[in-house]
Simulated assay, not measured.
Amino acid sequence: MFWRRWCGLFLDQKRRKKSDATYKNYKHILGEFVDQLPASVRFIDQVNADVLDSHMRYLESEKAAPKTISNKMMVVSFMLKAAGVATPSKMMELPTVEEEIPEPYTREDLQALFKAMTPEERVRYTFFLDTACREKEVAHAQWADLIDGKYWVRKKTFKARGGKERQFSPKSHETRLIPLTRELMDMLNARRKSSKSQRIFPNEWGDPEGHFLRKFKAVAKEAGLNCGECETTISEGRFTKHPAEVSCLTRPVCEKHYLHRLRKTCATFWHEKHIPIRTIQSWLGHKSLETTQKYYVASAIPRIVPPPCSYSRRICSNSSTLVLLSTRSSLGAVRPEAESRVYGFQ
């Protein structure tokens, strides 16, 4: 079968099963792959290790990061496997990807971040910090997803601006319930009274908010937490775009601040409060326990940690206070829904 015809069929299948963003990503990756194929390679059965290696060399020449190359080649491998090519992943030698070391925020950094936020920003990023949700899981959160003090992360269909119907699915389609802290529930209850949207965090047009990361980086700069060493190229100009070299000394582009750090921080809090590792895995939506252990909790996490009967921890720093409270249920399990994480601001 011709490459382009099969790619079209493969993408049609993904359009029905994947989100719009994932479909567009697959389409871009496979379009790039097909465009770079030698003219002599017209059929799927002509693929070999040399063809795949040639494409990886092309990606390297475009200065793609090792992780980007690995992700793109895996999409190509998925397509080849669906076309009947046996073990396509064995025909390619993927670049070595350095494992990301968890770097949760310190309590001092969190106090600085939340002190620099507006009231609106505090609600948004408290949601990130207290639920460990991914960006799109927060962007698509609806009031109907709040059930008995828990956030129901689930697949949903919604109408975007213009009436177009769209779908959202959690990563790996992992539907789950995440208990909310008392502080976050108080914030959300107050917010709901004045909300006119079915979404908890809509943008100005009523669609899911898409600028959480950009706004979070601006908060980090305002809080004085930028490292001052990051340099990157951005597009500037309202009508005519042009590339500009900028530094995190003067712009909110510090690579050390990203939303996943809030997710890692929350998982670390849970671990410190002796939440069972399998429970943390469930709340994070991980299929693999190894992923939970490797990326989101302490590196030397013990297999079994007996939870204490009860405890409270208070950390004070001049004008800011962080309070962590935990209680035991009648069954002996820690109840995060009874916890409170309070940030004081002056």
Rank of each mutant, 00 (worst) to 15 (best):
F2E: 14
W3M: 04
R4Y: 11
F10D: 06
F10E: 06
Q13Y: 10
K14F: 00
K18N: 11
T22R: 03
T22M: 07
L30E: 14
E32N: 15
Q36C: 11
D45E: 14
N48M: 04
Y58Q: 00
K63M: 10
K67N: 10
K67V: 15
M79L: 06
G84M: 03
S89I: 05
S89K: 03
P95D: 07
V97W: 05
E98Y: 08
E99C: 00
P104F: 03
E108G: 12
L110N: 10
Q111F: 01
A112P: 03
F114K: 00
M117I: 13
V123Y: 15
R124L: 15
T126S: 15
F127G: 01
F127M: 01
L129Q: 07
A132C: 09
C133A: 01
R134A: 03
R134C: 03
E135Y: 00
V138D: 10
A139Y: 05
Q142W: 04
W143D: 03
A144T: 04
D148T: 01
D148E: 15
K150V: 02
W152I: 03
W152M: 09
K156E: 01
E165A: 12
S169V: 11
S169L: 03
S172F: 00
R176P: 07
E183L: 08
L184G: 03
M185H: 02
D186P: 02
M187Y: 10
N189H: 10
K196Q: 15
I200M: 07
F201V: 00
N203L: 04
E204N: 12
D207V: 01
G210V: 05
H211M: 13
G224W: 15
C227M: 11
G228H: 12
I234H: 12
S235H: 02
R238Q: 13
F239G: 00
V246L: 12
C248Y: 14
T250G: 05
H257C: 04
T268R: 08
F269N: 02
W270G: 05
E272S: 14
T279H: 13
I280Q: 07
K287T: 14
V297L: 05
A300I: 11
I301F: 06
P302V: 12
S312C: 12
I315N: 03
I315A: 12
T321V: 12
T321R: 15
T327C: 15
A333R: 13
V342S: 14
F345E: 13
